[in-house]
Amino acid sequence: MAQVPVQTIHRDPQLFYWILIPITVVMILTGVLRHYATVLMAAAPKKQELPAIREQRSLLRGINLRMNANAISAPSFQARKDYLVTAYEGGHFLKDPEKKGQAAPNPMTDPAAMEGMMGMMKGNMAMMVPQTLIMGWINAFFSGFVIIRLPFPLTIKFKSMLQAGVGTKDMDPQWMSSISWYVLCIFGLQSVFNYLLGSDNAASQMAQQMGQMGPGAGAQMFGPGVDPYKQFQGEAENLAVLAHQYTLEGVEDRLLKTVKV
């Protein structure tokens, strides 16, 4: 079996100092810069007014009652249920009781929702702008260089990934071009940023992309576009049909069975 001769390319060692290291350093510095820019641009969470707090927590109280109804006796539960169901259906806890019949407001016109979207936009801009700039910078100065040889063999499929910007057909895929090094840096510097900036940094784009895909479930419950009156009515119905069972029923027999001296 004939051995495939190992390709050797004589590179100028200066490539290492003037391309590989500058790209890496610039990537790290942009990450750090982006982190601090995001921190500075982040607006403080908006304070909620008292009626809004009351609306949310009153709904939570109903949910608590439904979940933990077993902890209290049947008459106590009945009294609370009657009170909450009446209040929910009458819309007593609403932020503005006059608007209870109306449809949910359009989230686009709600200033609070707009602010949230603006925050997201800002975060996106902080990612996109430096990304574009650096890509352009690298293309302008460093395109077309083969800078390192990876120490492990790779199949031909990796060629398009590792040798972007270098149009040679027969070069071994182990050789890596400068643009590919840049792409590798984008995804590979996560742990460096964790070390430099702490684990909840805003430097890596991976975390940001994750955040866009699945926004927190908690935000949905009281988010814009949800009609609180509908929520209250739904909760009132849930409470009204709940079958109550008291935990303390038969607790003395349970205790005598389990606890041995």
Binding site: V251, E252, L255
Partner: peptide, 12 residues
């Protein structure tokens, strides 16, 4: 008796 059952629950 309610009080007694509460204490039972706390031990449980």
């Amino acid at each position: 008796s309610e009080s007694m059952r509460r204490f039972c629950r706390s031990i449980e």
